[in-house]
Amino acid sequence: MRAIAYALAGLILASGTAGAADITVTMKGMQFQPGKIAAKRGDVLVLTNDDTVDHDALVTTFGYGVNPGNIKPGETKRIALMKRGKFEIQCVYHDTMTIAVSVK
């Protein structure tokens, strides 16, 4: 069971998980797209802010908590999904922006 998150772009620890994939998430029009993600352990969320305002990606679920910090327009940050289960990501600044993530 792991939960790794890195705000430092490109910095992902090698987890040794075979077949891990990057999952692209856009932040545009005050929405995360997609809003629901089914992933497998070791996959990495690649969050890019395509909006004109700052966003954020706070994992609020107890036991999964991480916050890579502010994501400026045009910036990308990554969250590696190393712990199985379900959790929620919210934009700190815009509470209507959420992603439901399921990791198997």
Binding site: A5, Y6, A7, L8, L58, V59, T60, F62, G65, V66, N67, P68, G69, N70
Partner: peptide, 10 residues
């Protein structure tokens, strides 16, 4: 305790 948040940026 109701939460622990890693802040790698800080």
């Amino acid at each position: 305790l109701y939460g622990v948040i890693d802040r790698p940026d800080r």
